[in-house]
Design a protein around this nucleic acid. Structure first.
Lengths: 201, 201
DNA sequence: TATTTTTCTTATCTTTTGTTAACGTTTTGA
DNA sequence: TCAAAACGTTAACAAAAGATAAGAAAAATA
């Protein structure tokens, strides 16, 4: 994928949140950075401050924590999703988790200083504030749903819901990653899968 | 608490996010609504669209879901915190949960239309966009931490952390509310408490 | 004040989940 | 291509959690 295509993908996806006319786009453009990571490389790692919010234009990433030497997967992001260690990015404190590519992945990203500069811009500042707000609101809702599922649903219900809605995740992601995404162990997920198979068979 | 005190509390708390000069404050003021609910009244209930985002200036609320006739507590909010059924407020779709006062509670709130109007305002629009963004980012981080705790910590670890950090919650809130806040049953929390007592005794 | 109601703990029993290990299969990478 | 690593399932056992019920203490309220 060439640079132009990547940037166009960003502009296209941005429309989900705000529309940018040509002048606004030209003002934003100089701040966009294109980068690529190979499979299993880290977008961010614990102890480092996350300096970028990035749109995935190709590929996918996984956020995970390490506890007692074990990797615990928090979530996945695919094409046309923003990814960042938001807390680290927003608070300027070191990340506590990894974000790692699941495959060769291309990003269009904004670094922290660029974002702050853009917010202060005469021409596009207000629209970018709105852009930032809408992104935050979007992911706030995602997290709200996630917390709700943890307190109101059993792991089996969460998995069934994922079967209905989570198409891409289920195809491309190893099951033990999905397991701790659901808050359970791989062994436990395997048992749930067997139960479901028996019922539907 | 009189109206003036309530409004001043709002202005004071808003400083956490953005500073408002007198002109800006005067522009915002007409949109603020003051309301009071008695203990156990609903701020929002399932099936209704949440039309307000509200700062609690006195009192506290509890968000809960009802599943199979059981109340499942999602979180609590106290003085100087914003509360809303964010997903419903932002998406204009019916709420799936209750937000109910735990005691007589006074709110300073903005309704949805007022918020949209303010965002479009010539004088304060940009600053309000920023205000909205910072609030969303703040609660995004809260939810991020909450999800992390669900996937990386045991219920007992979550409770211990709450013991360290959650001062107010522990004093004012019945334990069975705290239990499902932690994602467990009241009986289970009671057992955890006994385990902790034995260790520390 | 008296009487409900709510709250918390405890006990028992059942179910679920975690832990560890083994095994075959698939994927990866040298 | 071939050895090593990763993956998913299953089994056996231990630990934890859920469900239910009972009882005492505290709080609400009539």
């Amino acid at each position: 994928m060439d640079t132009l295509t990547a940037l166009n993908k960003f502009r296209e996806h941005a429309k989900t949140f705000v529309s940018l006319d040509d002048a606004e786009w030209q003002a934003l453009l100089p701040h966009l950075e294109i980068s690529t990571l190979k499979k299993k490389e880290n977008f961010i790692e614990p102890g480092k401050i996350c300096n970028h919010i990035a749109l995935i234009v190709k590929g996918s990433v996984r956020l995970f924590h390490v506890k007692d030497g074990e990797e615990i997967t928090g979530y996945f992001c695919f094409e046309n999703e923003f990814t960042s260690s938001y807390k680290s990015f927003l608070t300027r404190k070191p990340s506590t988790s990894y974000i790692q590519t699941l495959e060769d992945t291309r990003f269009v990203s904004l670094n922290y200083n660029a974002v702050q500069q853009i917010y202060g811009d005469e021409l596009i500042g207000k629209k970018m504030e709105r852009f930032g707000r809408l992104i935050a609101e979007h992911y706030l809702i995602c997290y709200e749903d996630r917390v709700t599922s943890f307190i109101t649903q059993t792991p089996e219900e969460r998995y069934n819901k994922l079967l209905e809605t989570g198409g891409e995740v289920l195809q491309r992601i190893p099951q033990h990653y999905i397991a701790n995404f659901l808050g359970i162990t791989p062994v436990s997920l395997s048992r749930i899968r067997r139960r479901i198979m028996r019922i539907s068979a």
